[in-house]
Design a protein around this nucleic acid. Sequence first.
RNA 1: GCGGAAUUGGUGAAGUGGUUAACACGCCGGAUUGUGGCUCCGGUAUGCGUGGGUUCGAUUCCCACAUUUCGCCCCA
Length: 416
Amino acid sequence: MILKQKGTYDIFGDEAKKRQYINEILDAICQKYNYSKIETPVFESSELFHRSVGETTDMVQKETYDFKDRGDRNLTLRPEGTASIVRWFIENKLYGNLSDPVKVYYNMKMYRYERPQSGRNREFSQWGIELFGSDSELADAEIISLSYNAYRLMGLDNICVKLNTLGDTESRENYKKALKDYLKPYINELCEDCQERFEKNPLRILDCKVDCDNDILKNIPKISDFLNETSLTRFNKLKELLDLMDIKYIVDDKLVRGLDYYTHMVYEIVLDDSYALGGGGRYNNLVESLGGPSVPAVGFAMGYDRTMAMLEDKNINIPINNDIDVYLLSVSSDEKETSAYLAQNLRLNGFIVETDLLDRSLKSQFKSVDRFNSKFLIVLNDDDLAKNEVVIKDNKTKEEEKININDIIDYLDMHI
RNA sequence: GCGGAAUUGGUGAAGUGGUUAACACGCCGGAUUGUGGCUCCGGUAUGCGUGGGUUCGAUUCCCACAUUUCGCCCCA
């Protein structure tokens, strides 16, 4: 037997319906904020992700699905959405007309070679939003607002924004320098990973799980002390906006996030104060570093599957309707042709119809009626059909009557 | 990449080193029911994750691998 690959999953039945319902909520809210939907290819040039996500990140170093195609091209299954969207933005020269910001959202499969565990798979979905062409904290606030409200509309109430700023390039470089100066004497006391991060990406030491209880990290310099005037004012303005919009947030000055491309505002949306359901931030240098002009941008990505899992966990009701309108029963195989014809006719008139495709006994067909929870059932038998009649029965009230075959649609319209 | 737990039919599962792998649900057929939902009868795994090994003999013991699941790293 051939099985599905590790860390992949099939979506079908109620799960598929739930996702469809959630997708409709997400589509609807994006429409309200006037974001248009985008889909990008599953695979891209490897270089795209290596350059955007960051060569030194774990995601690129050990989690990407890299392969060569038959033309010897180096390709990678996308591990996240932003890089592809930025590539699209540059490739289509959308920077040429930014009289209004470009706002898009996506809902796509992503791929990372990881060990599967709760809320994490190798193939997984992210819903994300991106905004190009505004450097204003108003754009930051809009992105946060959209993502925050998306969760609330799905029914997740106990959420909160964890917020931080990495400042502009100048502030961040000053901070990095201060960090390294501070950590240098202690470097041998840090964990192995952090010793490596010290050179490559010192900010990442801040959210190291191994060293978090370490006294060295408790007295570590704070980014907030290194923000220059402009970085500080825009961060304060953003917080004012969030207050105004009644968005719950807490500032966490250890929040730096895993990808290299962030500048200024970064945030996560957490459930029950700790479980991260998504994250995002501003990335003002990414468009330029991928070969476009300097265009400010900000975005967010939601871990779709873990969000679905949380909806399940919190027993949040997602309406699923599997009921059908009519089941056509045939007393014997003689009525099957009429059944097929009638089923098509009813379906074309908008009804959800099932028939027996297995030529089973009448009793079995009745059992199917119950399994499908059909609102009505119609019994076809030759004697009645000779007079153009059928028996139609309301499966709830158990009332039945004999009607003309041409009156079925009218009858159903009146009763459903 | 590292660690823990699990792996018996369509489903939930019981079970033992040795003839036909319990039970329940489901499903199919039949009896009865004015055309079902109750009841009764019958049927429903050539098989106990895969591959090795130990043994006269393994689903049951050992090893490896795979998959599932929960953690770590990481990410969201």
